[in-house]
Amino acid sequence: MKIFLVRHGADEEGYRGGWSQRGLTEAGIIQSRALGTYLYEHAEQYDIQTLISSDLPRAMQTSNSIEESLGIRGIYTPDWREMNNGDMAGMLHAEAEEKYPGIYFNTLKMDTVFPGGESPTQFYARIRNAFENLCIQLEEKRIQSNVLLVTHGGVINILYYVLANREWSNTSSFYPIDNTSIHTIQNMEKGWSILDTNRIPHLRS
């Protein structure tokens, strides 16, 4: 039983991310199509039965390319969104700095919310709960394994800490998580473990 975590393709620079409604760049679309083709060509290796995705545009566009290649219909949910940065979502960096000077993901206290958004503690709890619910659904066979989960860098980073049983905060270091990279976790005898990290073979061909 495996879950393949995938970060969305490249999106526009110069804007605050989080719950931004901005989509992929042309490069991000190319990356996503390459990933879809790679997964189709290696279908026996991955044996993906379920596709789940964040419902933010950059993740949905990435998932659409995979849907087209694999012929699997995606399940789109807000559970797997990036951290909710509220009023700053999709805002130009310069505008955000003018209106909300000094407010960044890693400058918030753990229980301090983004204006109109959520706190790092709330973000962590949301992602941990989403992962626990996903595991329950798999164990109870309410969804089929293997699962491909298209989400965001901040989300995957939290899952690394959860799986390693390490304490996480918004100032914790980030694991390498490239756009459209594949991170493989598997349910072993002692629980879920990380098997493979940050694979991008589809971008090297």
Rank of each mutant, 00 (worst) to 15 (best):
F4D: 12
L5R: 10
L5A: 08
L5Y: 10
H8Y: 02
A10S: 00
E12T: 09
E13S: 04
E13L: 02
Y15T: 06
R16P: 01
G18E: 03
S20T: 15
S20R: 06
S20D: 11
Q21S: 07
G23C: 09
E26R: 01
G28M: 12
I30T: 01
Q31L: 00
S32P: 09
R33Y: 01
R33C: 00
A34V: 00
L35N: 09
Y38H: 15
Y38V: 13
L39K: 07
L39R: 06
E44P: 05
E44D: 15
Y46V: 11
S54D: 05
D55C: 11
S63G: 05
N64Y: 07
S65F: 14
S69K: 15
L70E: 03
G71A: 03
I75L: 11
P78C: 04
P78T: 03
P78D: 05
D79N: 09
W80P: 05
R81S: 08
E82T: 14
N85V: 09
G86I: 06
G86T: 05
G90M: 14
A94T: 05
A96V: 00
E97Q: 15
E98C: 10
P101D: 01
G102Q: 11
Y104K: 01
N106W: 07
N106G: 05
D111V: 06
G117E: 01
E118Y: 14
S119G: 14
Q122N: 04
F123T: 08
A125C: 04
A130Y: 04
F131T: 15
N133H: 10
E139W: 05
E140H: 06
K141T: 02
K141H: 03
R142A: 00
V147L: 02
V147M: 07
V147R: 06
L149W: 07
T151Y: 10
H152Q: 02
G154L: 10
V155H: 05
N157T: 09
L163I: 10
N165T: 13
R166F: 13
S169H: 15
N170Q: 12
Y175L: 02
Y175M: 03
I182D: 13
H183F: 07
Q186A: 08
N187F: 01
M188T: 14
K190G: 01
K190W: 02
G191R: 13
I194Y: 04
I194D: 05
L195W: 11
L195E: 14
N198G: 04
I200T: 02
P201Q: 01
P201M: 03
H202Q: 14
H202A: 00
R204E: 00
